[in-house]
Design a binder for these strands. Structure first.
Length: 423
RNA sequence: GUGGGUAUAGCUCAGUUGGUUAGAGCGCCAGAUUGUGGCUCUGGAGGUCGUGGGUUCGACUCCCACUACCCACCCCA
């Protein structure tokens, strides 16, 4: 146990961190193009925030939260999703006084107590977008566009955009009534959990994968037939915008999402390359959430995008992320005097912006060169007795194997210039 | 929470019906080359055989439990 990461968690090792940096750099750049700024909120919040925000009937709240009591007897919970904390910060700092809509993004770990499987961890990482204050469907289209552009920038294809509308509280009331009467008539054909759902949240039955429920669901009333004029108009406009932006999409009335706060637009971006858990990005509109959490009545839209799943898609599609060099120059030294000079020269090179490695283990010349080779050094600088006496050092090009002699200042200038072509 | 599969060196994996000292390839370290990497050759280090119990003269091997990992369900990113 001592030397084992907890179940469902993973280490990201130095040898693979460049993939995360690459993805994160694209995220930050893309968000700035779209006018979204980063927000960072705590990794844990008061438990009641999630109970209220995510919804007490959801699986997340009922069985998946990492909840603990601190020494002050407060009930706290590790974020099971990203939106609630952002909403809380928005209300707490009265950000609704800022220019609206307020557009934010986050990169954050997310914790859910579940059985791990392909594409599912107990700690995973999400890139999320939130836009507060605007009710136009063009925002819904904007965040979908951002997500799709993100995938495109990474070179990912074969993704499927699914959209649906689950209406607002007004039209959902009619739809829930229709669902209830339909399923009540067929109660005996429903699975156990769906019978419970029928009372608490009939919409969730639509999402059930049980075979016996499937048959019923196929003939069940469809939410889209019950949308009020406003919701219908919203959904129509969203589709028009998506067409203008050139996106193929599927209207999937089965997408209802597992979080209670959604209204109107919901969407998922799905990959078939990474196993059963193929939803890489999911989100939608939540017009009642901010008010529900004690803030002003303002609409919101957002999505969450799973970075581990994203990296799985990248892996499975054979997309190569460029691995940046982490060493330019290795200094190989001989003897005590040479070693002192090596330490000094390493410091000067680093100050000039050159990634420089120097021996710290008293290795032999051969071993120092071997290490340089493994690190991918472009050059080695050799400092031995001959070099010290002449104050000219050998600079060996590790690709070509040629070497020439330079004095100290020339070395610094030389690498300063050539480093431009390396990065 | 439920079901199936798996667990041997840093990594990928062999290991005979249960029989002395558990192996290979790659990787790591060193030497061949006492001031020069990659290729080659030689040598070396590295294992509580997932953990605990049981059967047996004897267990990596058979049995039980636990844990972890992989996959799937529920649900989600």
């Amino acid at each position: 146990m001592l030397t084992k990461a907890p179940r469902g968690t993973r280490d990201t090792l130095p040898s693979e961190i460049y993939k995360w940096h690459y993805v994160e750099d694209i995220i930050r750049k893309l968000c700035s193009y779209y006018g979204y700024r980063e927000i960072r909120t705590p990794i844990f919040e008061h438990t009641e925030l999630f109970e209220r925000g995510v919804g007490s009937t959801t699986d997340i709240v009922q069985k998946e939260m990492y909840t603990f009591t601190d020494k002050g007897n407060r009930s706290l919970t590790l974020k099971p999703e990203g939106t609630a904390g952002v909403v809380r910060a928005f209300i707490e700092h009265k950000l609704y006084a800022d220019a609206l809509p307020l557009k934010m993004y986050y990169l954050s770990p997310v914790f859910r107590y579940e059985r791990p499987q392909a594409g599912r961890l107990r700690e995973h990482h999400q890139f999320g977008i939130e836009c507060f204050g605007a009710q136009f469907p063009s925002v819904d289209a904007e965040i979908i566009d951002l997500a799709m552009t993100f995938f495109d920038t990474l070179g990912i294809n074969n993704l499927q955009l699914n959209i649906n509308s689950i209406g607002c509280p007004h039209c959902r009331k009619d739809y829930n009534a229709a669902l209830k009467s339909y399923f009540n008539d067929n109660m005996e054909k429903l699975c156990g959990t769906c019978r419970v759902r029928l009372e608490r949240n009939p919409l969730r039955i639509i999402d059930c994968k049980e075979e016996k429920c499937q048959a019923l669901i196929d003939k069940a009333p469809i939410i889209l037939d019950y949308l009020c004029d406003e919701c219908n108009d919203h959904f129509e406009k969203l589709q028009r915008y998506l067409k203008v932006l050139g996106y193929q999409y599927i209207i999937n009335p089965r997408i209802v999402r597992g979080l209670d706060y959604y209204t109107k637009t919901v969407f998922e971006i799905i990959s078939n390359d990474i196993g059963a858990q193929g939803t890489v990005c999911g989100g939608g509109r939540y017009d009642g959430l901010i008010e529900q959490c004690g803030g002003p009545s303002l609409p919101g839209v957002g999505f969450g995008l799973g970075l581990e799943r994203l990296l799985m898609v990248i892996e499975h599609q054979g997309i190569k992320i460029p691995e940046p060099a982490y060493n330019d120059v290795s200094i190989v030294s001989i003897g005590d005097e040479g070693y002192l000079k090596a330490l000094y020269l390493a410091s000067r090179l680093r100050a000039a912006g050159i990634f420089t490695d120097v021996d710290h283990m008293g290795k032999s010349i051969r071993a120092q060169f071997k290490r340089a080779d493994k690190l991918g050094s472009r050059f080695c600088i050799v400092i031995g007795e001959d070099e010290l006496s002449k104050s000219r050092f050998k600079v060996r090009n590790m690709q070509t194997g040629t070497q020439e002699e330079m004095d100290e200042n020339t070395i610094i200038e030389y690498f300063k210039e050539t480093a431009n072509s390396w990065r």
